[in-house]
Amino acid sequence: MKSNFFEVLRPGINSTFQDFGRENFYHIGLPFSGAMDNRNYLLSNTLVNNKYEAAIEFAYQGPLLKFHGKSTVIAVTGDVNFSITKKNKKLINGECYKNYILENEDELDIISTNKSVYGYLSVSGGFVLEKILNSYSTFSRAKVGPFKGEKLFVNQKILIKQTSDFKTQKKIKYINTKIEYIRIIKATNFDFFSKKAVENFLNKEFIVTKLTDRMGMRIKGPIIENIKEKNIRSEGIVKGTIQIPPDGDPIIMLSDHGTIGGYPKIGVVISADYDKLVQLVPNTKIKFKLVNLPEAEKIYEIYRLETDNLINQIK
């Protein structure tokens, strides 16, 4: 039997394979990587009856893919504009959070994300990929990941695993709500900054700049004045860490961040708000809100329950 596959007609701007992320390589300088918006990654997989398969993550413009084979089931999540052109030229406007059957020579056009950055495409059974260092995630800067760590490219052939005939229609109602403020916990150098700087940081608005990618997000607002030391000895950082370089403009470390850094840290974004943070497009206004560790843990528990409930609704 011939295997099912996608032919990449247009790769999109920043389309990569991602899964949960790559564990236990920080100590050699490899970031965690993985899907930026973990909940949407999980939902796309669940809608096609997968568990932990790799999905295609895209940012802004997504890929145009032609399906070859008998049939397969796909789902797209996020806030995404997409369409399916059947072989007979019939056009279907795609809805996110709903699965679709693709037949031979159907074209799936992921046109763009709306007012958000990332979206996810999953295919029933998953893609045929090689795990690199225990993960399907792509870290393109060090060329680590399937297809030699490259982003999607024109004429690429992506094989799809053969599965039993899963054809059940699945759908959920889910709206990607916007977040009003990003909740943070104080980080280890919180007291390096002047009282005024801290006040500004917690009360004033910041704007997401264009200098934002999978590595980090630069934001602009009032200058955060450091009254102690502008540089510290390089040490480990984690996803969500907010560093303040000497120029006073905060940088938030995202999934592909450098594993160590030498700028003082004012705060760390709580785990529960990470999915929403990464979806903020340039020019979005954001505000920070301070919470303590027990609060952050409670909020995460709620985030987790919500995610589980969504998954159970699909199943």
């Binding site: 564990e23 920080y26 965690f32 040490e235 480990g236 950082i237 785990s271 843990e297 995460y300």
Partner: peptide, 18 residues
């Protein structure tokens, strides 16, 4: 534990909050 990051004088242990 999902990551360990040693540096000159610090060690950061990242864990799975789940």
């Amino acid at each position: 534990i999902i990551n360990l990051t040693p540096s000159y004088n610090k060690l950061i242990v990242s864990f799975d909050l789940k």
